[in-house]
Design a protein around this nucleic acid. Structure first.
Lengths: 186, 186
DNA sequence: GTTAGTGCAAACCTTTTGCAGCTCT
DNA sequence: AGAGCTGCAAAAGGTTTGCACTAAC
């Protein structure tokens, strides 16, 4: 398997990061890298595939997976799970200099990014504590954003009133994952 | 879907944690909860299934998944990805009072746990920064343990000597996931 | 002209679902 | 008795692989 050179200088685009060591910067890879780079969002493979098809209708889903694997191994993109909020797929973002945590609202799905010194401190402590060489780190936090907290409180109150029982906190339930159902003869 | 009561007291076993709110503490669930509780390891669904079958050969894989989902939603167990070091499966551990990070060696697969104040500080900062209500948090760190660092250094030196080229650091490559292959007519 | 990359189809692993029958309480 | 749970079979979602062909260097 080819190994791609880690981005060291980043003179301009990410193009410089590839090329060395026999890795080819093909049309397909250019499209995909551009998409990941330019979209601020966290995209998953399927969405990336759909977007890439707009530019190149012949581009195959498999190429998306292979490219993502390459970029991931080369340290150009990071893979996220986002707490599996929407299923088992992975999400991708271009690797940034500054490490950050992802904060996911389990109700509305909004993702916030948190930068802060505890992350650096954590990293240093783990390295010195275990003599560990960190290659990648990922911290994800799931819960409820301020907006959804208010909404949930209201819903809970209304439900309680409707049932005429005293309000009692309930363990939060993750929204059921929207699985695509087969539509048997609609 | 039934909701199970969060463990509040934990007087002895985890049994008290269930029972309320119509959730039944069945033989199968007892077996599985015991396994997760007593094994220090991080088990995935398949391994858990195999181990449970030793006690109850009729226990079905589906029951494992359903039980894990229940325990997860009830906050009794935490789900880990362990950096997908071994594939796409999830790993489980009983929820502990003290939050901790998982440190995974990408070479030998060893998992260490790190407790430390940066984790608490991170949590507090995220809560106050976003007004976020944290339900669960997960931080995973991948890299090389001290043992494997030495090993990799040696291997690299040897490879370099064999090729008679100057030593040059290489981007670490994740070990290929061991996929079960179909054995077409051996 | 080589070597690496692509597309296609088919496999693969992990997890979920539908439903009839069983079992706790 | 009845809600809740289990097992079974079958499906789904997401990802990977084998192979012949194509494109980048």
């Amino acid at each position: 398997m080819p190994i791609i050179k880690k981005a060291t200088g980043r003179t301009g685009s990410s193009e410089d990061a590839l090329t060395e060591r026999g890795v080819r910067f093909t049309r397909q890879r250019k499209i995909l890298l551009d998409l990941i780079d330019k979209t601020g969002d966290h995209l998953d493979a399927e969405r990336l595939y759909q977007m890439a098809k707009a530019t190149d209708p012949k581009l195959n889903r498999v190429t998306v997976y292979r490219t993502l694997k390459l970029l991931k191994e080369g340290g150009l993109v990071d893979e996220l799970d986002l707490m599996h909020q929407a299923g088992e797929q992975h999400f991708y973002e271009t690797r940034r200099k500054q490490e950050h945590a992802h904060v996911i609202c389990l109700s509305c799905g909004k993702v916030e990014e948190f930068f802060g010194e505890p992350l650096q401190k954590l990293r240093r402590q783990i390295e010195s504590h275990f003599g560990f060489e960190i290659v990648l780190a990922r911290t994800e936090v799931g819960g409820y954003c301020s907006h959804c907290q208010a909404m949930r409180a209201r819903e809970m109150r209304e439900a309680a009133e409707a049932l005429a029982v005293p309000v009692k906190p309930v363990v939060p339930v993750r929204k059921p994952v929207a699985r695509k159902k087969s539509t048997p003869a609609q």
